[in-house]
Amino acid sequence: MGTVKLLKQIDNAFFREVGEIAQFTARFFQTVTKPKQEWEEFINQCFWVGYKTLTLVGITAFIMGLVLTIQSRPTLVEFGAESLLPSMVSVSLVREISPVITALICAGKIGSGMGAELGSMRVTEQIDAMEVSGTNPFKYLVVTRVLASTVMVPILSSVGIAIGLCGGYLGVNIRGHISWNLFWHQAFEALSFGDLIPSLIKTFFFGFAIGIIGCYKGYNSKKGTEGVGQSATTAVIVASLVVFVLDLIAVQVTDLLGLT
């Protein structure tokens, strides 16, 4: 009986949270269309999102490209398909690795940052102070951050693809030799719009989800400093999970549309 009750409570909490996030998202769409946009803060947030994660995304993408090439090489050599390495690396990076890795890094860095920053502002009454001063805190804080992460994650993912391919070029040249021009020619030749467009579209969704969840957790933070910590942690966990779920959906949709 106790276990059933516990499961019911967990279920209730889960569905309540899903409902609240849906309400928060609906509020975002209601607010974003209202006039007087906070462009200055939006640009500021875009800079911070890019600035905070570019180095991390770059280093991770480079290592992923390098490792992927080095680890795939023996298998391809076995089948006499070593020349397909640039194509394989580019398709892997564009379709899956760069979007997902970038989104996970952003979930960790931006999601937790938003959760902690807005959470701290909530518990120190800074959000109330904004409201009292006549500024809509939802528009100023949430809308700008969500839009910034929606715009910046695809850009970061694209940068990640380029840097990851550089890592792949290095990986190919550790054991073999391929010219810079040939590597890029082969990498691009293997790609089609069916690879690029779905990848780009899903990163917009990843960025939006990271922004919404980070802001939702921070904006609704409670219980003082303990709550701020909880907001930051749960923002990362939930955003990372949602990234995987969205990726799964994106793969299914791409498959259904025959783009794979």
Partner: peptide
């Protein structure tokens, strides 16, 4: 409104804090 916790915006300078209510 003077808040108990002051509620000054941490990430802004004093000038920006004071200018904030004017923007609306």
């Amino acid at each position: 409104f003077l808040f108990q916790s002051n509620a000054l915006y941490d990430s802004m300078t004093i000038r920006e804090n004071l200018e904030f209510p004017l923007r609306r």
